[in-house]
Design a protein around this nucleic acid. Structure first.
Lengths: 188, 188
DNA sequence: GTCTATAGGGCGATAGAC
DNA sequence: GTCTATCGCCCTATAGAC
C-alpha cells in the first residue's frame, strides 16, 4: 500500500494548494512541488487536474462529515459538539478553503454538482443526525461560512482594532453555535 | 463622456464574468465578448487583467456601501434597512460574487489587501453608522456570507426538499437580520 | 479610440525511458 | 511506478494600422 500512501500525500498537498489558490489558480506543478513528486506524475495519478480537484473536495467532505459524527457521538449538546468539530477542521486550513472554492464554482458541471451534493449532505446531517432545527442549522452554516471567509482573506493580518473585534466576535462561543474556537488557530 | 460609458459597460461585463468564473478562471476575452468589444481593448483600458479585477472589486465595494447608506438614511430599524439593501444588491448577481472571489484570494498581494480593507470598511459602517453591536454585526455578515455561498453554488438548481428548506430559512426575515428577501431573486 | 494580428509565456497533458 | 522531455493550446499583453 505504498502507492496508497503516495496518493494520500499528493491529496494532502493538493488540498493545501487548491485552498490557497483556488481551482483555476492552482497549478498541477505547484501541487507536485508541494508533494515532492513530478508534475506529470500528479496528472497520471488522477487523469486530469479536474479529477484531482474533485477527489480533494470529496475527501474534504468525507472528513468534515466524519469529524461531525465523531464529536456528536461523544457529546451532550449537539450545537456545542458541531462547534468543537470545527476546531479540528481549522487545523487543516486547506480543507475548508478547498470546499469554499468548490462552493464558488456552481456553474461548473461536475464541481458545482459535487458542491451542491456536499452542502446538502452536511445540512442533512446537522438537521437529522444532530437534530438542530432549521434556524439553528442555518445559523450554524452562516457562521461557518463567515469563519471560512475571514480565514481565506487572512483578516488576522490586518492591523486594525476593528479586525480584532470582528475576529473575536466570530470566533467567540457566545457569538454563535461554534464553541471552543480561539484566535490562535487563525495565525497558522 | 462616451468613453466613460464604455468603461462602465466593460466594468459591468467584467463584474458578471469575474463573478461567474473567479479571478483566474475568467479571461479577458470573455469579458470583451460580454461587453461587445475586442480583447486587446479591454486590456488597454485597464492595463492588466489584475487592474481590471481590482477596479471591479473597488466598484462593487463602493456600490455596496452606497446601497447600505441609502437604505439607512430612509429607515427606522437599522438591521431591517441593511437587509433591504441586500435585496437590491442581489439583483446584480456578479457584484456579490466578485466580492466573494476577492475574499477568497487573501494571499494575493493586491487583491487580498483590497479585500481586507473592503471587509473592514463594511464592518465599520454597520457598527458605527448603522449602530449594530458586535454580535449583531457578526450575525449580519455571517448570514450575508451564507447567502453569497448558496447563490454562488446555485443551490436553487438542486432538486431536493432540504435545499428548498435551507434556501427558505436563509432568505426568510426571521432567520436573521436580512429581511425582505424572497426566493424568486435566486433564479435569475 | 478601437480594431486585427501576433508575440510570448505558462500550463495541462502525452510520450517514452528507466 | 516514477521520472525527463516536450508538445500544443490558451491566454495575456504588445505592435501597429485605421
Amino acid at each position: 500500500m505504498k502507492s496508497e500512501e503516495r496518493r494520500e500525500l499528493v491529496l494532502d498537498a493538493a488540498t493545501q494548494v487548491f485552498g490557497e489558490s483556488g481551482y483555476q489558480g492552482a497549478t498541477t506543478d505547484a501541487v507536485a512541488r508541494a508533494a515532492g513528486v513530478s508534475q506529470p506524475y500528479v496528472v497520471r495519478m488522477f487523469g486530469t487536474k479536474e479529477a484531482l480537484f474533485l477527489a480533494v473536495v470529496q475527501r474534504a467532505l468525507d472528513k468534515l462529515l466524519a469529524a461531525f459524527r465523531v464529536e456528536l457521538a461523544a457529546g451532550d449538546d449537539p450545537a456545542e459538539c458541531l462547534g468543537r468539530a470545527y476546531v479540528g477542521l481549522l487545523a487543516d486550513r486547506g480543507l475548508l478553503l478547498s470546499l469554499m472554492h468548490a462552493f464558488a464554482l456552481g456553474t461548473h458541471p461536475e464541481i458545482g454538482a459535487l458542491a451542491r451534493r456536499g452542502m446538502l449532505e452536511v445540512y442533512r446531517m446537522i438537521r437529522e443526525e444532530a437534530g438542530l432545527d432549521a434556524d439553528q442549522a442555518g445559523g450554524f452554516l452562516a457562521h461557518g461560512m463567515l469563519i471560512n471567509t475571514v480565514i481565506a482573506m487572512r483578516l488576522g493580518e490586518a492591523d486594525d482594532p476593528l479586525a480584532s473585534e470582528l475576529l473575536a466576535t466570530v470566533l467567540s462561543p457566545e457569538s454563535g453555535r461554534l464553541a471552543g474556537l480561539d484566535e490562535t488557530r487563525l495565525s497558522s
